[in-house]
Structure formats: structure tokens, C-alpha cells
Design a protein around this nucleic acid. Structure first.
Lengths: 237, 237
DNA sequence: CCCTATTCTGGCACTGGATGCCACAGAAAG
DNA sequence: CTTTCTGTGGCATCCAGTGCCAGAATAGGG
């Protein structure tokens, strides 16, 4: 079913939509790159060049969304926590706004462990980006405590976001306002947990105990070096 | 370098160690299954049968650890939160106790995106297991709020665990006591955030606000139906 | 001890994802 | 029009992964 050869390059979105249809109808494994090439009019070789792999076709739109979110985050003027909340909102919006791809993809992902891993890797990319953003933007020293708090806050945020997202993906016909209400509730839930976490580092001097165990023979400088390393490693509590 | 044919089945661990060595020396992609077969004396076909894939050889030990942790979790009599902390301790112990595999694997994972995704998928499995465990064991109704709290708590725990784990993997020569001190500190950090989260559902009736937006024309029953659906969806805040 | 059923293993052939190489078409630049 | 650059398709090749089958090893029953 070679498409009209008249025009130039076939749009990415067209290829993705056709591929999603083929995957859904024939199964992911049973769909070959030759089949996609035949269905879209793009040569097998060009498919690999443009998308990288068969899986990447399915997640091409998602990669774009990720870039958008990261760019948005870098340009965000708000306080760090509000910025990542807004970024998460953008991600959910990306899913809700493109159900033609995201919903059947979710069904495929649920059925295929390999695709599920790929999806998980995507959310991990968000988590890493959010974590780094929070660690960079939040004040405090450069110690490990900050990156611990940032990492945990980002993980919480992603988890809450995915909780709402999955709920919608399972029944995409539900009212959007309910979805957004759930999202707001989830973000509020995370904010209550994450805000004191990130604030904690500012008053980090109080209410902390350092426990050091070390051989009796070592010198003073060596002891200090070790303690410094340990504290920088993860921040004692 | 075919191994002595005298004995029976070559142990899994031997195959993994040999493979890790080959991956490290020649690169993951440059190492073929034929190469591993030649180096271990196990036929190419049996390698696929026993491990599933080339990547799975690298993570075989990790899969075992995962099963151990899950079994431990199921048999754990402690309160749920302490149980998952203990389980996380078990995971870290699994890494620290097998540096011959875990350390070079970390180097490979860092260098190769595909392996990184695989590693991320492993941690996601832990996160899902912990989340389900918390959701099942913690009291409260069966609503979405509980699974939200459980998911966020599990995500926080995994993130904190990985924070400590990565710190050790980057410099595995550091004192183990420092690692465990960091771990304890990180767990304490998570406990402070997660405990109120999970408790919150018990006194869930207080301090909550319901915001409903709806068209003016709908009837009373329809309004109640929608509100009920929204609250069940993710628990308003 | 022998014969049988089950399981594990290895060899073989084959599919299909993925990559390198090269030739060619179209657009942009001179 | 010529040159250059970029994107494309065809071709050959590599190698992970799978189905099939035959043979070895192991267990079990008489």
C-alpha cells in the first residue's frame, strides 16, 4: 500500500499513526519493519535512520514531549517546586492531548514487557531531569543531602503524576475535569511532603547527629577527611 | 577456550562472571553470544535457553536478588513501612555483597543507554512490589488515595536507596560503615516524609477540601454521581 | 540391572532488527 | 550550470533470538 510518491518526506506523525495501527492489529512482534515500510511508503532503511529502532517509532512523539518539557523547565522563572509541578502538568497535558497515540500505546505497553521497560525508562528520564533541576535551583550547600531531597521529591512527583496518568489511560473516556482535579489533588499531596524536605536543608544545622566510627590509630587530618567524605556522601542525620 | 567437559552443567555464576569480564574487556556490543559460548563451554543455544537474552546474563544475579527480596517481604511480620525499609536494606546488602558483579555492571550500565534502561526497569520492579505491598498492608479503605500514598512512599524509598547505592558504586572502595550510615540516614529521611503520608489516610476526613466544577443545568443525582466518581478516582484533597 | 519417561543440552536453519556502504535525488549555495 | 550538502533507498552483512529435532543425562519403576 505504497502512499502517493508525489509529495516529499512523509511526516513523522503519519508514520507513527500507521505503525500504532499495525502494532495494534497484528501485534508488535508480528509487525515487521518491512511491513511498516510498505504501509507508509518510507523505505525500511530510512525508518531506521529517522527513528532509530522499531520501539522508537512508538515513542517518537513522547521524545518530542520530553524535549518540550525540558526546554520549558529551563526557562521557568517560578520557584523550583512550582516549576516542576507545572512541568508535570505539561506532561499530563501531552498525554491527554494526543489520545490517538497515547491510549493504544498504553495498551501495547501493558501487554509487552519489553515496551513496558521502555516506558519506564522514559519516566526515569523525567525523574532525572526534575531531580537535577531541583538540585541545581534549590539553595543550600553542594552536599549530598540536597541531591537526596531533590531526588526523593522528584520521585514522589513522578509517582503521583503516573498515578493520575494511569488512571486516565485505563479509562480515557472519563471527564477531563475529573482527571485534572485528581492531578491537582495529587500535586497538593506531593507538595505537602516535598516542601518541608527541600526546606529542611536550609535549617540543616539543627536537629542532626553525626555518628563516626573510626580506627583509633588514624591521624586528625585523616579523620576529618573521612568525616567530610561521609557527610558529602549522603548527609548524616 | 572450551572448559573441561568432564563435569556437568556449568554454574550460572561462572557464566555471568565470564560474561562480565568479556563485556568489560571488549565492550558489550562487540561481545557476541558465540564468544560467550566459546569462553564458558556452554553452547550458544543453551545460553539463550537459560538466560533468555544477552542482557539477561548481566542481570541474572539481580533477578535472583529480586525474588529473594519479594519472598522476604511476603513473610515479613513487621509493620509495613519497617518491612520495606528492611527489604531495601536487603537489596543494598545484595549489591555490597557481590561487588565482583555489581561494580563492573554499574560501569557497563553507565556507558550503555540500553543497559541503563534495563537497570531502571529493575528498580521499577522493586518500586512496584513495594508499592503494592504498602497498599495491601496499610489499613484504610480501598480508594485511590491509599495507592497514591503507597506509590509515593515506595518511590521515595527507592529513590533514597538508589542515592546511597550509586554513591557506593561510584567509589566502592569506601568504608562500608559509611555506606550503612548513609543508608540509615536516608531511610530516616524517607520515614519522616512517608510516615505522615500513610497515616494521613486514617484521619482522612479532616483537613480536606472538595472543589467541584459542574454545569449549572445538571440534576442533583448527576452531580452526586460525578462527585463520587471524582473522589473515588484519586481522593480529593 | 535394565528399560522407559522426563529433562536438559547442543546443533542447525531461519526470521528479522540493526548497521555500514554506496549511489542517487533534490535543495541550497556559489 | 556546477558544486556541495543533506536526506533517501537499495544492498550486503552481522548477530540476537526462536523453533525444531536428535542425542545425552538423569530419574523412576519394575
Amino acid at each position: 500500500m505504497a502512499r502517493e510518491r508525489s509529495g516529499g518526506r512523509v511526516a513523522t506523525r503519519e508514520v507513527v499513526l500507521a505503525s500504532v495501527r499495525l502494532f495494534t492489529e497484528n501485534g508488535f512482534d508480528a509487525t515487521t519493519m518491512d511491513g511498516i515500510a510498505a504501509a507508509t511508503g518510507v523505505s525500511r532503511r530510512s525508518l531506521f535512520r529517522r527513528f532509530g529502532s522499531k520501539e522508537d517509532i512508538l515513542f517518537a512523539e513522547h521524545d518530542e514531549l520530553f524535549s518540550t518539557v525540558v526546554r520549558y523547565l529551563e526557562a521557568s522563572p517560578d520557584d523550583p517546586l512550582s516549576s516542576v509541578f507545572a512541568a508535570a502538568r505539561l506532561v499530563l497535558q501531552g498525554y491527554l492531548g494526543d489520545p490517538e497515540i497515547t491510549v493504544p500505546r498504553y495498551r501495547l505497553v501493558r501487554a509487552h514487557p519489553r515496551l513496558r521497560d521502555r516506558e519506564v525508562a522514559m519516566t526515569a528520564r523525567y525523574q532525572a531531569a526534575f531531580s537535577r533541576f531541583l538540585a541545581d535551583r534549590e539553595g543550600g550547600d553542594g552536599g549530598g543531602e540536597r541531591s537526596l531531597a531533590a531526588g526523593v521529591a522528584a520521585a514522589s512527583l513522578i509517582s503521583a503524576h503516573n498515578h493520575v496518568l494511569r488512571s486516565w489511560l485505563r479509562s480515557p473516556e472519563q471527564d477531563r475535569r475529573e482527571v485534572w482535579a485528581s492531578f491537582d489533588a495529587a500535586m497538593e499531596f506531593v507538595r505537602r511532603a516535598a516542601e518541608p524536605m527541600l526546606r529542611a536543608e536550609e535549617g540543616a544545622a539543627r536537629e542532626r547527629v553525626l555518628v563516626a566510627v573510626y580506627p583509633g590509630g588514624i591521624g586528625r587530618d585523616e579523620l576529618i577527611r573521612r568525616v567530610t567524605a561521609a557527610v558529602e556522601g549522603a548527609g548524616g542525620a
